[in-house]
Design a protein around this nucleic acid. Structure first.
Lengths: 171, 171
DNA sequence: TTCATGATGTTATATTATATCATTTCAGAA
DNA sequence: TTCTGAAATGATATAATATAACATCATGAA
């Protein structure tokens, strides 16, 4: 219950009455600026603009949807433009790609950008409302690491995407 | 150690000296026949042939690779043919799609086809040798279910694909 | 300034997947 | 057995996602 409340408050801004999305975007962008500055990476105007478009919602967005949004603001833009920006943002861990949806979403855990660039991201994805929330769970991390360890397997990358119905969309 | 040995013996036929792949294919096909018969589903010659092609290796195969293999045996065949066969096989849980690779692999757990059609499949994928092994782990299942349960989330589908280096490919 | 590097623009194309409608096959009803 | 409706397959076209290759531009260091 308490966990569920946290889940809504922190991760589910659309269901949380108090969510101020414009400040949410601003803080994501500010965090990205800081992260890139610290690393000596360049968050160029284009990359920043794409990140802003990704953050328009807390739902996954397709590359070609982003392309269309970018075209609204910049006139004709070709696919490589958006894909290169997304590649950079994913490399920096500022955006994640959801393989099961072939779509992209802003990273919900900006705090984790220091040590690890593209940290492991685990998602719950609601098939009804489209919301995708990034989860952190020690037990899950432990299970994955344990499983891999026992197999002598060294993890490079994790795709963990659980689809179904969120609490709000049941019934 | 014991776990790792099991992992190799059961799941990693290329590393297991005793692996008889032709009998492995036969048992996969026999199992599929039995499963479909029990359900009143039709494992047609085409579907059976596609399943056989999927089982040529224990590595993920792209739909268009399968299409090419099928064309070698049948002359000109169009994409919908292979996709429809794969859709059927995935629905029956005889094949899994690896979202992180956009590829398909034979299901390594034929025993689980009774209750659940497309059961949850969790993979370790070696980026070096390309081997993908389907894992079953109670702790992992527990962690996922616990996480979802606490969020009030009802699971419909799981994509869990851990990429990295298998024991044989380290160093 | 000049140069080297990385970022972006531009064109073309690769890769993966599906919509649509025609035709065939097959199991069960008559 | 033949008929028939549903499912499976064939065939054509196209959608959706992504990358290769090369030209141009911007930026910062020497």
């Amino acid at each position: 219950m308490a966990k569920n409340a946290d889940y809504q408050r922190i991760e589910n801004p659309f269901a949380a009455p108090g969510h101020d999305h414009s400040s949410c975007i601003v803080s994501a962008l500010d965090g990205a600026e800081a992260t890139c500055a610290r690393r000596g990476e360049r968050l160029t105007p284009l990359r920043r603009q794409v990140l802003e478009l990704v953050w328009r919602g807390h739902r996954p967005v397709g590359a070609y949807d982003l392309l269309a949004l970018l075209q609204d603001e910049r006139g004709r833009v070709a696919p490589p433009t958006i894909y290169r920006a997304l590649e950079f943002l994913c490399d920096q861990g500022l955006v994640h790609r959801l393989d099961s949806l072939q779509a992209f979403i802003g990273c919900g855990h900006p705090g984790s950008h220091d040590e690890e660039h593209h940290h492991a991201a685990h998602f719950l994805i609601c098939q009804e409302c489209g919301l995708a929330v990034e989860m952190r769970d020690g037990q899950l991390d432990g299970a994955i690491n344990g499983l891999a360890g026992r197999a002598g397997f060294t993890i490079a990358d994790e795709t963990v995407e659980i689809s179904g119905l969120c609490a709000e969309c049941q019934g």
